[in-house]
Structures are given as C-alpha cells and as structure tokens.
Design a protein around this nucleic acid. Structure first.
Length: 383
DNA sequence: ATGTTC
C-alpha cells in the first residue's frame, strides 16, 4: 500500500522525545518505550509525554506527537473527539441534593428528544450513531456535578463568568461508536500505518475525523443537557476542549500534524484537568508559548494500575458500596461493579502532583480547584 | 475506548 507508512519502516530519523514529569510523577517504563517507538515513525518530529503518560494499546496515552508528510490515525485512537466540557450551573451549592440526584439520574439509552435536531442546532450532520448521542459511554468517561473548592486566580475565574458559590458540571465523553468506526475503517487497510499528507485517503480520514470531533462536542453538550434536566437546572458552556485529535500546525512556515492522544490543548484557552472520581479537578490557564510541549497539556491524572490490576487489588480492599462515596462525601453512580473497581481513586496517580509538574514546567497557572458533588458513570441496564 | 459477544 503506497499510502501507508508503517512502524516497521524505521529508517527515518528518530524524533525529539521529551517526557514532562518529575520523578514524583512516576511514569511506567512501558509508556516511555511506547513513546520512543512512536517517535521512530516516518516523518515524526516530536514525541512529548505529559505527566499523566501511561501505556496504551500500542500508542501511549497522555502524549502529543508532531509529524511532517504523514499523519497517523492510530495515534489519535478510537475515541476521536473525546474531551472535557465544563458548564456553569444556575444553582447555588447550598441547593445541591446529591443523594436525591444519585437515586434518580439515568442517562442510559437514547435521548427521548430530537437528536438530529439537537445536532442541527450545533451545525453537526447526523452520523448514524445518534442512539448514543447524549450518553456518557464507558471507561473513564463521566458527568460530574462539582463545587468550587478554592479560587487561585480571581481575575481569570471572574472573567469566565464563574462564581464560587455556584455548581459546575464537568462532562468527559467522546464520539462513542462513531470514532471507533472511523478508526476501524482505517486500521482495516493500514493497521498502525499512517497516511500520506494530501492523499485522497488522508483527506477522507480528516473529513471524518473533523465530523467526529464536532459530534463529540455536541455529545458532551447533550450529556450536560440531560444531567441538567435531571437536576432541574439550566447551564452555560464555559469551555469545551478535545484531547484526542489530529490538527494542522505551522512550524517555521512548514506544515505539520499535531496528534493528541489523551493530551489537552495548550493553545485554546483555559482547560479542566480532572483527577480521579474521588479527587479535585483543576481549572488551569495555559502560560508560555507551548512549543516545548507540542502545544499540549496533561488531560487527567493518568492511570497508575491497569484495569485488570485495579479490579483485583481494589476488590480486595474495598466494598463496592464504600466506593459509591468519596473522601469529599460525594456520591458516585456506577452500577457496573467491574467499572467501579477499575475507576476507583487508588487506580490513578495523584492529580495534585500531575498539575504541579505542569506548573513547574512553566505550562499552566492554576485558576481554581473543583471538588466532586455527584459523579454519574453508569446505571445498571434494565433487561 | 467500543450500538463492548456478529
């Protein structure tokens, strides 16, 4: 296949590799080996590991890559357009009813409204996956009602229209089956190989990719709408950032491709970096020019234990019931026990260390910390 | 991550 550049064609010079993590942000050796393997792909210029770097399926998660001449769908992964949406909720913290909300919120199954119409309002064409529009999905995805823990940058916080006594809603989800179908169509032909820039196949992939990114953003907006409907509130989108994507980039007048695989943008304004579901989330403002980190930031705490290891270790130490409450006294709706164990806080690195690494690398300033009130993961399906 | 076992 003339359009494919495969990982085995390793004659290309190795790209610059950088891992932005202090020794305290322990990074698994396998993740670094994966980063170095990706750096040997043809056309690769930079491979950057962020402090949440951890091993993935071939390509590491928590990383950003720049390339010339080729782009690599495999480096974006299956959940094209996955990201974080933050919404300002028109409800004071004192009106929070986490227990009541936990007992009744249900976002399983298709939205009862007009999904195509909702997409049209967001200028997104239907994709054939609308039954999943407005659903959270699995893995580390969630929708979480939060309160403000502390404000560190009053000016930026106020400029975003936020208030310390008002609830927030953070949605982590992506393009569900759509991104998966797009990657599968690519992998069927090219495996982990890339596409030659400007080839017909590259153009087709990029068109589908951009659609999935827009669909994912609309999905987060609909997840937010369903959550807000469930708690009897309305909200305003404060920010929405994608952490799985490939986008064009100009470097010294040359065209490059910036791949983000679990990496938040450094060049799109403020972002939220969530901890585990029993930890703070950080609202941060990028600082500096971002070139040293491929214009990217950590996208979360990063997994410390594999899902398999987490299931075994956490099942030994905690009951499922105890994991539905956190050290913040927040509630977790996760009626899939395996998922509850896989996603338990000890399976993740401490988010404060990850954010401190970004601050010390001169990449962000902390604007505020947000504490969980109610996390929605999944409701048991009724047969 | 995944209309996750077509």
């Amino acid at each position: 296949m003339s359009t494919a550049a495969t990982p085995s064609s390793s004659s290309a010079p190795t790209a610059h590799v950088r891992v932005i993590a202090s020794p305290q942000s322990w990074v698994e050796g396998e993740a670094v080996r994966q980063l170095e393997a990706m750096a040997r792909l043809p056309g690769m210029r930079m491979a950057v590991g962020l402090p949440d770097l951890h091993p993935g399926k071939g390509a590491p998660v928590g990383a950003a890559f720049t390339s010339e001449g080729f782009l690599y769908p495999y480096l974006v992964g299956n959940d094209i357009g996955c990201g974080m949406g933050l919404f300002d909720v028109d409800l004071p913290v004192r009106k929070a009813k986490p227990e009541r909300w936990a007992s009744k919120l249900d976002l399983e199954g298709p939205w009862s409204g007009d999904a195509d119409g909702f997409l049209a309002e967001h200028d997104v064409k239907p994709a054939g996956f609308e039954a999943a529009l407005g659903t959270v999905g699995g893995g580390n995805h969630f929708a979480e009602v939060q309160r403000v823990d502390a404000v560190h940058d009053v000016a930026v916080f106020a400029a975003l229209g936020l208030a310390a006594d008002r609830l927030l809603l953070l949605v982590h989800s992506g393009s569900r089956g759509l991104g998966e179908a797009i990657l599968r169509a690519h992998v069927d032909r090219h495996a982990a190989g890339g596409l030659v820039e400007d080839s017909a196949e590259a153009r087709t992939y990029l068109t589908r990719h951009d659609h999935a990114v827009a669909w994912g953003r609309a999905n987060r907006a609909l997840v937010a709408r369903r959550m807000l409907d469930g708690i009897g509130a309305v909200g305003r989108r404060v920010l929405d950032v994608c952490h799985n994507s490939v986008t064009p980039l100009k470097v010294d007048g040359r065209k490059q491709w910036l791949h983000r695989k679990g990496a938040a943008p450094h060049d799109e304004g403020p972002v939220v970096i969530p901890g585990s579901r029993g930890a703070l989330s950080y609202l941060v403002m990028p600082v500096g020019d971002g070139t040293g980190s491929a214009h990217s930031l950590a996208h979360g705490a990063g997994r410390k234990w594999t899902r398999t290891a987490a299931r075994e270790r956490i099942r030994e130490r905690f009951t499922a019931e105890s994991l539905t409450r956190t050290s913040f006294k927040s509630h977790v709706v996760c009626e899939n026990k395996d998922l509850l164990f896989e996603e338990a806080p000890p399976a993740y690195k401490p988010i404060d260390r990850v954010v401190t690494d970004l601050v010390e690398a001169g990449l962000v300033r902390v604007v505020a910390t947000l504490a969980p009130v109610l996390t929605y993961k999944t409701r048991a399906k009724v047969e």
